[in-house]
Simulated assay, not measured.
Amino acid sequence: MTGFVSLVGAGPGDPGLLTLRGLRALQEADVIVADRLGARAVLDGLAAEGVTLDAEIVDVGKTPGHHAVPQDAINELLVTLAQDGKRVVRLKGGDPYVFGRGAEELEHCRAHGVDAEIVPGVTSAIAVPAIAGIPLTHRGIATSFTVVTGHDQIGEIGGGRDHTVVLLMGVGTLAHSAMVLARGERGADCPVAVVEDGFGDGQRVTIGTLASIAHQAARRKVRSPAVVVVGDVVALSVYAPEELRASVPASS
C-alpha cells in the first residue's frame, strides 16, 4: 500500500503561525522530514506547548554552504517512505512554493506514483517584515512588492521607492544588492531594513539606506537568517529613526 506525502509550510518559526491544516497533517503523520529554518523551530515550539506528535522525525536541514542531505536524496527519501506505506509530512520553512523547492518535490513524488499535496504556509517574506512594523504595501506609499532571492547576486529590479523589494537569503550579497538597487529610481537614500532571526530569540532590526546598510550590517555583524526590505515602507517601522520617518510622505 502506497502512503501519502504532504508538503507543509511551517511558516517563519512561530508555532502560532502554523496553519490548522498543517498541524493536523503533523498529528496524522508517521514520519516528518524536517528542514532546519522555521520547521525545526515549529516542532520545538509545539513540544514546548505540550503538543505530542507520534511521528518519527528525520532532520534534513541545510546550513549555509553545507547541505547534509542533497535535494535529490530528499526527493528519493519522500518517495521511498511513501512507497513503504507511510504518511509523510515534508515540513518546510515558510511556504513550500516561495523559494522552497516545493514544486520539485511534488513533481518527483507524482512522477513516481506517490500521491502528494501542498499545504501552504506563511512566508517569512511577509511575516518577518510585519513583526518589525513594516507593511509591504501601504496606501499612498507603496502599491506593489517583489520578492527575490539574494542567494545569488541580483540584477536590475525596476520600480521606485513605492515598489517594495524583499530579499530572502540576502545577507551575503547585501552590499551588491544595495549598489544595484541604488543605481535605479530608488536612489542611494532609499530606506532599507534588515530583520535578523525573525520570531527567534536573536530577533534584531537594522535600519538604514541603500548607501549605508552594507556598512551598518558589517558593523553590527548581521547574520543569516535575515529578511531585507527596501522601500519607503521601511520608514513606517517603529525601529526607523525619526529623520527617516520624516522623509517619507504621509499616506493620503
Results as ranks from 00 to 15, higher is better:
92 K>H: 08
93 G>K: 05
93 G>I: 08
93 G>E: 09
94 G>P: 00
94 G>E: 02
96 P>F: 02
96 P>T: 14
98 V>L: 09
100 G>Y: 11
100 G>Q: 13
101 R>A: 06
104 E>N: 04
104 E>H: 01
104 E>M: 03
104 E>I: 03
105 E>Q: 07
106 L>G: 11
107 E>T: 10
108 H>S: 10
109 C>H: 05
110 R>Q: 13
110 R>V: 05
111 A>R: 11
111 A>G: 09
112 H>G: 12
112 H>Y: 09
113 G>W: 06
113 G>I: 05
113 G>P: 10
113 G>C: 12
114 V>Q: 05
114 V>W: 13
117 E>L: 01
118 I>A: 00
118 I>R: 00
119 V>W: 02
119 V>Y: 00
120 P>E: 06
121 G>I: 14
123 T>F: 04
123 T>D: 06
125 A>R: 11
126 I>D: 09
126 I>Y: 08
128 V>Q: 05
130 A>T: 15
130 A>F: 09
130 A>G: 12
130 A>M: 09
131 I>S: 04
131 I>Y: 02
132 A>C: 07
132 A>I: 12
133 G>I: 08
133 G>S: 07
133 G>V: 15
134 I>P: 01
134 I>F: 02
134 I>C: 05
136 L>P: 07
136 L>N: 04
136 L>I: 08
138 H>P: 05
139 R>M: 04
141 I>F: 00
143 T>N: 14
146 T>N: 03
151 H>A: 04
151 H>Y: 09
152 D>F: 10
154 I>N: 04
154 I>A: 02
155 G>T: 12
158 G>L: 07
158 G>I: 07
159 G>R: 01
160 G>Y: 06
161 R>V: 12
161 R>E: 00
163 H>N: 07
163 H>Q: 13
165 V>P: 00
165 V>W: 00
165 V>I: 14
165 V>N: 00
165 V>A: 03
166 V>R: 06
166 V>G: 06
166 V>E: 10
167 L>N: 07
168 L>P: 03
168 L>Q: 05
168 L>E: 04
170 G>I: 11
170 G>D: 08
170 G>M: 07
171 V>M: 10
171 V>T: 11
172 G>S: 06
172 G>H: 10
173 T>R: 03
174 L>V: 14
175 A>T: 14
176 H>L: 13
176 H>P: 13
177 S>T: 12
177 S>H: 10
178 A>W: 01
178 A>E: 05
178 A>G: 06
178 A>N: 01
179 M>I: 15
180 V>L: 11
180 V>T: 15
180 V>Q: 07
184 G>M: 06
184 G>L: 09
185 E>L: 09
185 E>T: 09
186 R>T: 14
186 R>E: 07
187 G>A: 05
187 G>W: 13
188 A>S: 13
190 C>N: 12
190 C>M: 14
192 V>F: 01
194 V>Y: 02
196 E>D: 10
197 D>Y: 04
199 F>L: 10
